[in-house]
């Protein structure tokens, strides 16, 4: 079987779709180069990412699908699932062969998989819009650490840019080791050398880096959170379903007091 090895980027994936039609090869398996383990019957083909080819495929899909679905495809890609890449590849071919209407065919495994993966990524995006907790630093910047399940920073940057247009902020993805920073006019990608700047305690910033009133507002927020609970309705199962434990370490209301000391 043909195995297309791409570089793991969205451009690479779209280029692979282009190559499949250019070379008229079928069926094709697709794998990110870094994670590829050669199989006995494989015939590997290296795909070189190419902007022009990728754009042609993207525009081709754009003619067949509405913008909703186009952004779903991209979101599903950010899900970073190995089988997801294959489904996206197959779905793109399915659309190119049969036209955009088939996207409504939830009986098709690729449509369903991509729709469901998009839902997971979308949920994570929504969670990040909710669970980001900024701490104000002494220099005025609002800083937040996150560790999302999927690579959702590209999806949330517009939301934060619109909402906090008059403050400088940084949201940093610790797992993928990059962040987005807004300087008052535009959003850009940044990487930070962490060990140098942060303390050891649960990703919380050391007190001397924080703005003067930061600890006060964290304390107020924790007090508020505690008092908003009605003890006789306590429902831990539901609480954890809504706020899974893996997010707790970056949530101010769930951190231990005193913070940052």
């Amino acid at each position: 079987m043909w195995v297309y090895l791409f570089d793991g980027t969205f451009i690479g994936l779209l280029t692979a779709v282009f190559e499949r039609y250019d070379r008229k090869q079928h069926p094709v398996r697709i794998a990110p180069q870094q994670r590829y383990a050669p199989g006995l019957m494989d015939e590997p083909v290296a795909v070189v990412s190419d902007d022009t080819k990728a754009r042609r495929v993207w525009q081709g899909l754009g003619k067949r699908l509405n913008t909703d679905w186009m952004s779903r495809l991209y979101a599903a890609f950010l899900g970073e699932q190995p089988e997801g890449f294959q489904h996206l590849f197959d779905l793109a071919c399915y659309i190119i062969n049969h036209g955009g209407d088939v996207i409504a065919n939830y009986g098709n495994p690729h449509v369903l998989y991509v729709a469901q993966l998009h839902r997971k990524v979308h949920r994570e995006k929504h969670r990040m819009e909710a669970f980001v907790r900024f701490q104000q630093l002494a220099d005025g910047i609002f800083f937040a650490l996150v560790e999302p399940d999927f690579n959702v920073l590209p999806l949330i940057s517009r939301h934060f840019k619109n909402r906090y247009a008059d403050q400088r902020w940084t949201i940093y993805d610790r797992r993928r080791d990059y962040g987005i920073h807004y300087d008052g006019s535009g959003v850009s990608e940044v990487t930070i050398d962490f060990i140098q700047h942060t303390g050891k305690h649960r990703g919380v910033l050391p007190a001397d880096l924080l703005a003067e009133q930061e600890v006060l507002y964290q304390t107020l927020w924790q007090g508020y959170f505690k008092n908003a609970t009605i003890p006789s309705r306590k429902n831990t199962t539901l609480h954890i379903r809504h706020v899974p434990r893996r997010y707790w370490k970056h949530l101010t209301e769930k951190a231990f007091l005193p913070l940052a000391l």
Partner: peptide, 30 residues
């Protein structure tokens, strides 16, 4: 929508920023 130089906007579907231990949404400073 956010206005020029202003703070914040609202989302048509709303956002629950946290959940109390009784499982209720915390969206607004109530």
């Amino acid at each position: 929508k956010n206005t020029k130089g202003g703070l914040g906007n609202s989302h048509i579907s709303g956002i629950c920023h946290s959940y109390t231990e009784d499982g209720r949404c915390v969206s607004l400073l109530k």
